[in-house]
Design a binder for these strands. Structure first.
Lengths: 340, 340
DNA sequence: CTGAAAGCGCTTACAG
DNA sequence: CTGAAAGCGCTTACAG
């Protein structure tokens, strides 16, 4: 239509220069007017281009099987997009070990991927990684825990404050006026903790804002997560304050608290925590954990890769904050969430 | 590798005959041994094959915006799979009008699509459609409401009985022993009602099976859904039985009950219903509806098309029953579900 | 700055 | 029953 060869058209589509302004404009005009859109199937077949996405996630660990889920989501996305030349390179670290995190970042920087998907556990190291990305002008996406940074391509995860707020609402149905509640923060390491603290903040705000619920809230931090330390730590609280009607655990370790409650026959106490792990589900089955808040872990990984795929292959504009739904899990519906 | 031309290889891959047993076997052997998998991108480009999927859904109607969601899911899937030659043809009917359903089926049968995605509203007509499909040997998928039929390719939707069971569990947190509960079934038409009845059955079984909840349950059917009829009908019940502590509405018309409760200041009564429609959300915002059960309407439509896509294009085996999660919606988390 | 040709991995007639 | 050739809509050198 423009009286030029496909080679020239290709040059203007991918604006890689070497075209006179006059032909370029002519071609652009025609593309617009005729609503031409490139056939990405043909493009993929012809270009044989490979996109290498680095995936920086914690390794699954004995304390929690949570991180196997985002990885499953990544693998699912990789399968779907493999036809388009998407390749994932996994860099798994030990979430309790800063050095391991740092090492994987070194490897990523060395291997020069085309983009990176990050679970940002340790602050300084994460900053180093994204500075390297900026320098190399490659996009990066955060998953699970957000990172204040205006240059990221996107974040895929949950609104953590709101999830705590929701937990409080659920709690409010089963505790009466004047009850005493306990918020437990249990973790060996306090890095990567902003979203955990947000959960607590959200929970507290609910009861502050809903004046018809006069509730006394205690905060408790447990650093040592072995069984004995937990017992000691909780025995003290529960003996001193014998009126605790509800417990909110701000992460996936809620099963450890459930075990304590079961062994000490402290029911009825409404227990709410996070994440659909096998360990937690045991206690959901036994009616000891009442609610789990789930953050769509599989979709987080899936969405992370798809975001990059949309950006590179489909040239779609992607949203900077992708908040996944806050799912409420009970004994009655958990089965349907397991594969998700 | 087999010493034959690509044409011959193609013939055995698509087993369209005209190949001697000896060469066929040789080729099959090599395909297996070398783990050859066809490049579907190249295949799509070369074949230019079009798959026409008929979509038989209710039209969106003033009483409920629910059905716009599955359609949105269909459109999303169509966008993603358009590159592979998937085309959707929509046949929308009036859900309260059997004739309209029948008419669209006639059109589908006449147009001979390659597959059909069905929201099975009226029984006999649906049977006629699937008999036609069987005859023409084309696959069909049910959405939203299941259909007892062993020849279907798949069903995508919710386990309706379990959703009622879950609703009862939620109800149990806020009603005391000996309370009186009301189940409301509100609908102009009673076809397509099996999954609605299942919800009721599920709700009732929970309280039957959990003996620590001694609860009196009333059932109430409302046929005329205009405001006055509802008022009359409910006034009677609420005046006779002044102790109703919770109401479970088995479909998306819960907002009509909410309106009645609001206007008659009957709170506190725990109100649970179905579906994240705009009409319902108003009353969630006002704390009149406590919980909505959502059935992932967008994913139903999306999943329906993707099931057919997987079947035709990816040659994947698909599951016969695809139960989507039963989402629990409250004022605190509904925003994150709206686009889903 | 521009065009012509080859090629990506398949499918589709057509000829034998 | 089998093969050779053209073509799907792009990209990629290469030549000028």
């Amino acid at each position: 239509m423009a009286g030029v060869s496909v080679g020239t058209v290709d040059r203007v589509i991918h604006n890689r220069g070497e075209v006179s302004d006059i032909t370029r404009n002519k071609v652009i005009r025609i593309i617009k007017d005729s609503h031409y859109v490139p056939d990405i199937v043909a493009r993929t077949l012809a270009s044989k281009k490979i996109y290498r996405f680095a995936v920086l996630f914690p390794r699954e660990n004995p304390d929690s099987t949570f991180w196997s889920k985002p990885l499953a989501g990544v693998n699912k996305a990789l399968k779907e997009t493999g036809h388009y030349g998407i390749v994932g390179e996994k860099y798994l670290f030990d979430q309790f070990n800063r050095t391991s995190f740092k090492k994987q970042i070194d490897r990523i920087i060395h291997n020069e991927p085309d983009a990176v998907l990050i679970a940002p556990f340790y602050y300084e190291e994460t900053v180093r990684l994204i500075e390297n990305c900026s320098q190399r002008k490659i996009p990066y996406v955060f998953i699970n825990s957000n990172f204040q940074d205006s240059s990221k391509l996107s974040f895929v995860g949950q609104d953590s404050k709101q999830s705590g707020y929701l937990a409080a609402r659920l709690m409010s149905y089963s505790v009466e006026q004047g009850s005493r509640l306990l918020i437990i923060n249990i973790s060996k390491v306090l890095d990567n903790h902003k979203h955990i603290l947000n959960r607590q903040t959200g929970f507290e705000s609910f009861f502050r804002e809903n004046t018809n619920h006069k509730i006394d809230i205690l905060n408790h931090y447990i650093k040592d997560t072995d069984k004995n330390s937990i017992s000691n730590s909780l025995n003290e609280i529960f003996s001193k304050k014998n009126e605790i009607k509800g417990v909110f655990v701000t992460n996936s370790k809620v099963y450890k608290i459930a075990r304590f409650i079961e062994e000490n026959r402290l029911k009825p106490v409404t227990l709410i925590g996070y994440d659909l792990t096998e360990e937690n589900l045991q206690y959901v089955e036994k009616n000891i954990i009442d609610f789990l808040i789930s953050q769509r872990p599989v979709e987080q990984g899936y969405g992370g890769i798809m975001t990059l795929f949309n950006h590179f292959v489909l040239n779609k504009r992607v949203k900077k904050e992708q908040h996944l739904p806050i799912d409420i899990i009970t004994k009655e519906n958990y089965k349907f969430y397991i594969k998700h």
